Simulated scan of single mutants.
Amino acid sequence: MYVAVKGGEKAIENAHALLAKRGSGQERVTAQQISEQMGVLVSRVMNEGSLYDPELAAKALLQAQGDVLEAITLLRSYRTTLPRFGVTAALDTGALPPERRISATFKDIPGGQQLGATFDYTHRLLAEELHTPEVPAAQGEAAEAMPRVTDLLGRSALVEPDHPQDWADPEPGDLTREPATFPMSRAERLQALARGDEGFLLSLGYSTQRGFGNTHPFAGEVRIGEIEVLFEAPEIGHEVPIGRIEVTECQMVNQFVGSAEKPPQFTRGYGLSFGRAERKAMSMALVDRALRAAEFGERAVSPAQDEEFVISHCDNVQATGFVEHLKLPHYVDFQAELVLLRQLGAEFGQSTDGRASNDPD
Rank of each mutant, 00 (worst) to 15 (best):
Q265Y: 02
A233G: 00
A143Y: 05
A95E: 06
L82E: 07
R268T: 07
R124S: 13
R79D: 00
D67F: 05
N358S: 15
E36G: 04
I242M: 09
Q318W: 06
Q335R: 14
N254C: 12
L51Q: 07
L272E: 03
L158N: 08
A57T: 07
Q37N: 07
T208K: 02
A336L: 14
A89T: 11
V149I: 14
Q305F: 08
E232H: 08
D67R: 06
D197A: 10
V3P: 02
S302Q: 09
A117C: 00
P263N: 05
G213R: 00
V332N: 09
A58T: 03
G154Q: 11
F266Y: 05
A168P: 00
E171P: 06
E239D: 11
K262P: 01
E36M: 10
A260S: 08
E347M: 14
Q33E: 13
Y331E: 15
T248C: 11
F231T: 10
I227S: 05
E298Y: 04
R84I: 15
G211K: 05
E337K: 15
I245L: 12
V3K: 11
S203M: 11
K6S: 12
A60G: 07
F266N: 07
P234D: 06
L125A: 13
L286G: 01
T80L: 11
T150Y: 02
G199M: 04
I224L: 13
L340R: 15
E9Q: 14
E134Y: 10
T93R: 09
G345M: 14
T105D: 03
M252R: 01
F322W: 09
Y52G: 04
V159M: 05
G237A: 12
D306W: 05
V159Y: 01
G321N: 14
T215N: 03
A356D: 14
A304H: 01
Q255P: 00
E27Q: 14
T208I: 09
T80K: 13
L204I: 04
S302A: 15
F182W: 10
Y2N: 10
K107H: 08
F182P: 08
T105A: 12
I236G: 11
V159I: 15
P360G: 11
G243Y: 13
Q191C: 12
H16V: 15
L204M: 08
H163D: 04
T320P: 00
L56D: 02
G237V: 14
A58C: 07
S156P: 01
A260T: 07
P360F: 05
Q139V: 12
E188S: 12
H325M: 10
F309A: 03
R189Y: 00
E198R: 07
